[in-house]
Design a binder for these strands. Structure first.
Length: 128
RNA sequence: AGAGACGGCUAAACGAUCGCUGAUAACACUGAGUUAUUGGAGGAAAGUCCGGGCUCCGUAGGACAAAGUGCCAGGUAACUCCUGGGAAGUGCAAGCUUACGGCAAGUGCCACAGAGAAUAUACCGCCGUGUAAUUCGGUAAGGGUGAAAAGGUGCGGUAAGAGCGCACCGCGAUGGCUGGUAACAGCAUCGGCAUGGUAAACCCCACUUGGAGCAAGACCAAAUAGAGAUCAAAUGACGUGGUCCGUGUCUGAUCUGGGUAGGUCGCUAGAAGUAUUCUUAGAAAUACUCAAGAUGAAUGAUCGUUCUCGACAGAACCCGGCUUAUCGGCCGUCUCUCUUU
């Protein structure tokens, strides 16, 4: 398996290449992360990569979100959020945890907005 | 018209833009991608409670243990499921419910109340006898207690009573007759009636069950280092369903090449669905259809319009059931009550 060279060709897309699919990739990101952000119930862990584009992985534990329908809903919201803002994550691998969820998803969306602001602040500090 | 019973169907609709995923075609080409067309959660996908297919381990043979099932007949790949029937209970009825073999093999349990609770019992009462009086004997008809007091009603009988005797009802028994494939039902005969409940208590009887599960398993294959086959030796250790018998492996020699990360297959054309005929379920015949296949895991987001303002809830190898959750809407058949004619 070579490196995907042509990743986010479509501006609003989210292809297989832009998702984390290996257990080892998850482990390496979680073990030595560059950035960690927490805004309950969302937790973001990120590590710089050399691909030139961002990748996303989500972890929604069955323990925290009991219903399978809700778990799917959370995952879709996260992916949609990542897809909308993929350019702002530059060349980082992102892992998102969600520890709690309750209907409707508006609260989660608001939290994600805050996370995005935190992320911008952090990335600008590092970038300089 | 109202109240109810049973069965079936459905699970907001439409449009636009962006996105994900399978298939097909074209373009392109060795990284793959781009474009177009088209498929993309459920009635329970759930719980994982049963049954099967499929796969491997294995050979399944025996004994014990454990678990399950328990009226009869039929259906099915199979079932603890379904259909029909019987019996019992329940409702005015349509209907609904039932773990529905055996407490006369043994053991255990049955609180409280009550005189007495399983070898029955004499507290009050009733009757007899005796005394100044307490007493003694008979009695289960009456009272009281209780979930339950050892058949019920009537007549006879008696000191008072009692299946003590008789009639009817109930119960039990054996064998007989009739109907039914059978469960069972009806009739006849005999027994004065004898043993309360609990087996979803242990248990007894009859029957059934090899284990693990698609992370099964097969193939391709980096690093690193194993594995398999044949022959010989050994009888202790380890494994094989819980245990035992039984049975397999080890150690050496020879030969063969090897398989973890990752990937591919398994993976959806099937005990399939729909319609018609036939039908108790089912089976059969004919015609038509192909209807998700993901894998850190697709089926979504935003906007607009309409309405009755949207419940429970998300496929993970596949089927048949059961159980549980659920906003509503629609259709059919039937029952009861009321009104009108």
């Amino acid at each position: 398996m070579g490196q995907p060279r042509n990743p986010a060709r479509k501006p609003g897309g989210l292809t297989r290449a832009q998702r984390l699919t290996k257990r080892t990739e998850f482990d390496s990101i979680l073990q030595d992360a560059d950035i960690r952000l927490t805004r309950f119930p969302v937790r973001l862990v990120a590590k710089a990569n050399t691909l030139g584009f961002a990748r996303l992985g989500t972890i929604v534990a069955k323990r925290n979100v009991r219903s399978a329908v809700d778990r799917n809903r959370v995952r879709r919201l996260l992916r949609e959020w990542f897809r909308a803002h993929a350019d702002r994550f530059r060349s980082y691998d992102i892992v998102l945890f969600v520890r709690d969820y309750s209907k409707p998803g508006d609260q989660l969306k608001a939290t994600l907005e805050n996370v995005l602001q935190d992320w911008d602040r952090r990335i600008n500090k590092l970038g300089t």
